[in-house]
């Protein structure tokens, strides 16, 4: 433990450069179930064609890719993401309720001035695209079996609910619960680590925070690859 601490101290370098804990960002907060329901109910009908144009004007494509397949490891793939989830994420960034890491600042900048309609259009556009399964190296069959077990059945002994029970058997997501199939390994891992560390707090019932904390790093890694490759023949 002591060794670990000293490594941390070294890595952080001088104090004035140390990052503030992003979770301590004043505006970041966990939404209530009612707020989520209301936000979803208020979502306008999106226009995918307009969303595509906006995606170019607003530079979404520069990181998330023209077809929603991320071309930067810093950002998630959006192709095939549920419209509700993308819409809500954009809203969270605009209202500053989501600030899991420094990158969130760029999203805050990118969504400045977007209307509810703009957000719905962009969200519907990305939802209309086909996810591209990752070419990440295949898991060993044992690791694959373990990941599949967690994904489909969870681990009752550790109170980990099956991922599929909310995210769908094919990782397709369901409204405000995001799709996982075809998500990049990096984005999946980053999200889980942010939940695990308590930097991301947008999970209404704190479920994701708890599941992430109960999983081992190896399990998270394997699940990332499992979902990234999902749908790949």
């Amino acid at each position: 433990m002591k060794t670990w601490l000293s490594v941390c101290a070294l890595t952080l370098g001088i104090v004035s450069l140390a990052q503030a804990n992003p979770a301590a960002h004043p505006a970041a907060r966990t939404p209530t179930q009612a707020e989520l329901r209301n936000a979803l109910a208020a979502m306008p009908n999106g226009d995918a064609l307009r969303g595509k144009r906006l995606g170019q004007q607003l530079m979404c494509a520069s990181c998330h890719g023209e077809t929603g397949v991320a071309i930067s490891r810093n950002w998630s793939s959006l192709a095939g993401q549920t419209a509700a989830y993308t819409y809500k994420s954009l809203q969270d960034y605009q209202q500053r309720g989501r600030f899991e890491n420094q990158r969130a600042r760029l999203m805050q900048v990118a969504v400045t001035g977007m209307s509810q309609q703009d957000m719905a259009d962009v969200a519907v556009y990305y939802a209309s695209l086909k996810p591209a399964p990752s070419s990440a190296p295949r898991l060993s069959s044992a690791a694959h079996a373990r990941a599949e077990q967690l994904a489909r059945h969870g681990d009752p002994a550790r109170l980990i609910t099956a991922c599929a029970s909310c995210h769908g058997a094919a990782g397709q997501g369901n409204k405000l619960t995001p799709a996982l199939a075809g998500q990049t390994v990096e984005a999946f891992m980053r999200t889980m680590h942010d939940y695990r560390a308590g930097h991301r707090i947008t999970d209404a019932n704190q479920g994701m925070r708890q599941f992430a904390q109960r999983m081992t790093l190896a399990e998270i890694n394997d699940l990332a690859i499992y979902y990234a490759r999902m749908g790949k023949p």
Binding site: T11, Q19, P22, I71, S72, R73, N74, N101, Q102, R103, R105, L106
Partner: peptide, 22 residues
């Protein structure tokens, strides 16, 4: 560590080359 800029360490060669080309 946790910055707005994209970390380049460990980036696969093809990804770096494609980014610079584009």
């Amino acid at each position: 560590r946790n910055q707005e800029f994209v970390p380049l360490a460990g980036m696969p060669e093809a990804e770096f080359i494609r980014a610079m080309r584009d």
